[in-house]
Nucleic acid binder design. Structure first.
Lengths: 210, 210
DNA sequence: GGGAAGGTAAAGCGATCGATATACTTGGGG
DNA sequence: CCCCAAGTATATCGATCGCTTTACCTTCCC
């Protein structure tokens, strides 16, 4: 669902300037940040004139919103790793673990673009913050659903815990400039999933989801 | 020059303009972000003229560095919660759990200012990124040390896991605009600490620190 | 083959950025 | 008392910001 028209090509015959702009936004916003990326650099990378840019997006903030929507639902984008939750050739447990499988090249991805956008937005750009908030909630919901499929005893609790680990790995690896947190997160995730799906008799106390 | 007593008061008789500038930086940078906070707003809040500002800091970037150093070592600042690791009236276990104790007002703190600075710095401001990286490593080291005091079986592993949870709680609560991740992190931290300090016979497999 | 949609190139808008310069005011110590 | 460092106020610098505008091409479709 939500295969929104934002990912569609230019509606009419044109040579797809909008698509090039969005691709440039994904590349530059995610790598360099939103504030530091000006319209000039954007149009330069997209090979698009300023005029054309503003014929497709009424403002930079509108492009930011479009960028966030694409990043949130792009199977090719920098957060494509989240889409492993949809790979039904894997078991639910494998899907959950695949989230933490291979650490993306830290220099390229630089944490979660959505979270970064919220940080950069601070007070301004409330629409962007709302988009990110919604995506994070949906992602947590998908985790919970997958945890349910995996047979977790407390899927709500496990899903939220995995979301916490995923976000922590992305944030801490950015600050540390190191992929070690991904390995720690994977190890911990594996343990949590196993504990939540193991026979009750061996379960230690204190796991109840609130 | 090397007048690097960043935390010291104004060295000469003046009415402490430098201190007011730093305080304004802590308030504005942490709340609104670095890019969005201009020199004008800074000097306005600090009740300082532009000239005075540049007599104390050669550039905005220098102020950013001073701001990060203060935030990283300020017992009153927005990250003061980390200082509970130094409260020796508590047991090591209590200190570790206190990290996740009460969620700070999300509207005020807005995640970890140091991590946020790294996100905003992106490519620019390498000094700031290095400062943050160093602080995060030191913080992890303190966690490991405290985990050792708490009698953890794998203090290295536990310390890094707790750092992961702490970072995840701060980041995810920012994106979600909700303090729920802090509660999840606390719950999970408590379980991890207990598991790591419990009798070996009851320990489930898969905990070995790599 | 002609018109319109879609595109390019470039000048320039006001605003604001970080940073600098000029000129004046204050206040405590020798 | 007067000096001088510290601070104030304000004007301004060049650069860049997001954005607008004018004028002119190119390509697709009927």
């Amino acid at each position: 669902m939500a295969t929104s028209e934002t990912t569609a090509a230019a509606p009419r015959g044109g040579r797809g300037a909008r698509e090039r702009i969005l691709r440039a936004a994904v590349e530059l916003f995610a790598r360099d940040g939103i504030h530091v990326t000006g319209i000039a650099k954007l149009t330069d990378v997209a090979h698009v004139s300023t005029r054309t840019f503003y014929q497709h997006f009424p403002s930079k903030e509108a492009l930011v919103s479009a960028y966030l929507q694409r990043v949130a639902s792009d199977s090719e984008g920098p957060v494509h790793i989240e889409t492993v939750l949809e790979r039904h050739d894997l078991t639910a447990r494998e899907r959950l673990l695949a989230l933490f499988a291979d650490s993306p090249p830290a220099k390229v991805v630089r944490g979660c673009p959505l979270h970064n956008a919220t940080v950069e937005a601070a007070g301004t750009m409330p629409e962007a913050a709302a988009l990110v908030e919604r995506h994070k909630r949906e992602f947590t919901e998908r985790l919970i659903k997958t945890a349910t499929e995996a047979g977790a005893r407390e899927p709500e609790s496990l899903g939220r815990q995995l979301a916490l680990l995923f976000e922590g790995a992305r944030a801490l690896s950015t600050s540390l400039n190191d992929t070690l947190p991904y390995r720690d997160a994977r190890e911990l995730a594996e343990m949590l999933i196993d504990q939540s799906t193991r026979a009750v008799s061996q379960l230690p106390p204190g796991l109840s989801g609130k």
